[in-house]
Design a protein around this nucleic acid. Structure first.
Length: 431
RNA sequence: GGGGAGAUAGCCAAGUGGCCAACGGCAACAGACUGUAAAUCUGUCCUCUUCGGAGUUCGAAGGUUCGAAUCCUUCUCUCCCCA
């Protein structure tokens, strides 16, 4: 991946709103030619979530600007536990789980960066590799000696835990992460560490260590914590976290997550999560403001991100499903679908099997919604939502909680599309 | 060790013998309006319900009473002040 004119990475981050803190001299260092920079990923789950996507994009932009991005998976740091942003001591992961998480994350990271040979070839490293044979005594002699407790205690992540308590393990985390930077600097000529703003403290311990151990110079920058316009956390919905793993979050849901972002948020997201140029973004934002109901921004983000994280096919399927579900004449569109299309459209929608013969005999609506399908935990809840107009079958509102559901409405003589609220769909399959 | 304050639904927070399934706010969910947006308005928000009700709650366990979140006893935990 060679670009005709390498972009200025810092400028790029600035207009995208992705620059929080930067160490003096960083921009100058970057301007001298391609350098290596890395970001660490904490293996707390077996999949990255959209929150991690910010850091992935930082690496991607870094690479687009002609530099060499390195993703570090925390096989060692994951065993310790980062106290940053945590109000209480964490539970340690067992090694088996850690290994699973590590491999899963590594695989995901490989999708985003360009690993083909060249001056900006991406790399993935695992800090377990240089920690596994580093004994405790050697570590406290060779590394710990260079950093004072006073320095470590001054960090925000530690300060905030002074009242409630912090274990020695978590306290030493910054030193472990700091040594990563030193090691990479020493052996891979790593010049820059990046990360979320909560990592600033850990990162600077690294640059400090490099200076004290060898008088070397290393640089750092962080990205701001992304928040939604209403101040709530980014990347979570009613259903929980939005994951990159299609098993955890279906491509349809993933696509919908971006489609649902508010206007204000999407103006930020388009900058962070797409590689569109500044001019294109500005044009699109202007077009969006002209006719916001077209949701141009949401569509553009959802498209690019879904394709990057999943695939073009997944995007097309999600898009098609969304058009049918949210389009102008959804009921008609539904009944026109042939079975294959219908199934592929609703691939990401929970499916429930029910008995066709019972349905032919007629099932009381509430039985169907609660006992038979488990869509509602109780009949009372089903009744309440039906009464308040929150339930649709095949995109047609049902209003009578005492109604019977028969087989006459079956799509393709086999399926019923149940809708709970506006955005939760279930496909009932009559066998 | 001494003294004081407190523990109420996801969170904050009223309530000190019956009118309490418990004011109010936030969060959440649904509806209306829209554009699958925001804001606003409305409804739901312990569990179950044949929507008439039924059952289980107010740190825990006992007790007083016709009746307790409210009074008494013991226990557990949290916070503050003094040593």
């Amino acid at each position: 991946m060679t670009l005709p004119q390498p972009l200025n990475f810092i400028e790029e981050l600035k207009w995208r709103g992705m620059l929080q803190d930067i160490m003096p001299g960083t921009e100058e260092m970057l301007s001298k030619g391609p350098v290596k920079g890395y970001i660490g990923f904490d293996p707390t789950a077996d999949s990255l979530g959209v929150g991690n996507l910010v850091q992935v994009m930082t690496l991607l932009h870094f690479q687009r600007c002609g530099h060499q991005p390195v993703a570090l998976v925390g096989g060692a740091t994951g065993m310790v536990g980062d106290p940053s942003g945590k109000s209480a001591e964490r539970n340690l992961l067992n090694e088996e789980q850690l290994q699973i998480n590590l491999n899963a994350q590594r695989k995901q990271l490989e999708k985003f960066l360009d690993f083909s040979a060249g001056p900006s070839q991406a790399m993935i490293v695992n800090n377990y590799d240089w920690f596994k044979n580093f004994s405790f005594l050697d570590f406290i002699r060779d590394v710990g000696k260079h950093i004072t407790i006073n320095y470590m205690m001054a960090k925000d992540s530690v300060q905030r835990r002074m009242e409630t308590g912090i274990s020695f393990t978590e306290f030493s985390y910054q030193l472990v992460q700091g040594y990563d930077f030193y090691y990479l600097w020493k052996h891979l000529d790593m010049k820059l560490q990046m990360g979320g703003s909560d990592q600033w403290g850990n990162i600077t311990t690294g640059t400090e260590l490099i200076r004290r151990m060898e008088g070397g110079e290393a640089f750092a920058l962080t990205t701001p914590l992304i928040k939604k316009a209403d101040g709530t956390k980014f990347g979570k919905t009613e259903g929980g976290n939005i994951w990159l793993d299609p098993v955890r979050t279906s491509p349809y849901k993933f696509f919908q997550f971006w489609m649902n972002s508010s206007d204000d948020d999407s103006k930020n997201y388009i900058r962070i999560f797409t590689t569109m140029t500044k001019a294109d973004v500005e044009t699109l934002v202007a077009a969006h403001d002209q006719s916001p109901h077209l949701r141009l921004l949401q569509k553009a983000i959802a498209k690019e991100v879904t394709i990057r994280v999943h695939s073009e096919e997944d995007y097309n399927a999600a898009m098609e499903a969304s058009e049918i579900l949210f389009g102008n004449a959804p009921t008609e569109a539904l009944s026109k679908l042939d079975e294959d299309t219908l199934l592929s459209v609703f691939e990401g929608v929970p499916q429930v099997n029910i008995s066709k013969s019972e349905l032919e005999a007629g099932i009381p609506l509430l039985d169907l919604l609660a006992d038979k399908s488990g869509i509602f935990p109780s009949r009372g809840e089903a009744r309440k939502l039906v009464q308040s107009g929150g339930v649709s079958i095949n995109k047609q509102k049902v209003s009578d909680p005492n109604a019977q559901q028969t087989a006459t409405d079956l799509l393709q003589n086999k399926y019923l599309l149940i809708q709970k609220g506006k955005k939760n769909y279930y496909l009932l399959i009559a066998n």
